[in-house]
């Protein structure tokens, strides 16, 4: 089960990874190798077998609606690559490329 270059490009865009041309080439080969291996699960008969998302049999774990202290503005922005007026500064927002 291979993966073509167009799919690599599409997935890279979804994942927001600006990969170079040869990175994409290598990615295509490596993903194909890995997918060839994992595709063996296609041969299993899984009819009537429910998917497992959680292994702990817990249910209804919730917290009471209580307010706890927040970080200060300084703490919140301490690691910001760029900030202005107490806010995180980001380049112009455009729709997904």
């Amino acid at each position: 089960m291979g993966i073509d270059r167009a799919t690599v490009d599409h997935v890279a865009r979804l994942a927001r990874l600006d990969l170079s041309a040869d990175e994409r080439g290598r990615m295509q080969e490596e993903l194909t190798t890995i997918l060839d291996h994992v595709t063996r699960i296609q041969s299993l008969d899984l009819d009537g077998i429910e998917p497992t998302a959680h292994t702990v049999p817990l249910r209804n774990i919730m917290r009471p609606d209580e307010v706890v202290p927040s970080l200060t503005q300084e703490e919140a922005l301490a690691n910001a690559p760029a900030a202005e007026d107490g806010r995180f500064r980001v380049p112009r927002i455009v729709e997904d490329a």
């Binding site: 994942a15 927001r16 990874l17 600006d18 990969l19 170079s20 980001v90 112009r92 997904d96 490329a97």
Partner: peptide, 12 residues
């Protein structure tokens, strides 16, 4: 130059 370019390069 824009958010998509910044984020995609940052991650790459």
């Amino acid at each position: 130059a824009d958010i998509v370019e910044m984020t995609s390069r940052t991650r790459a």
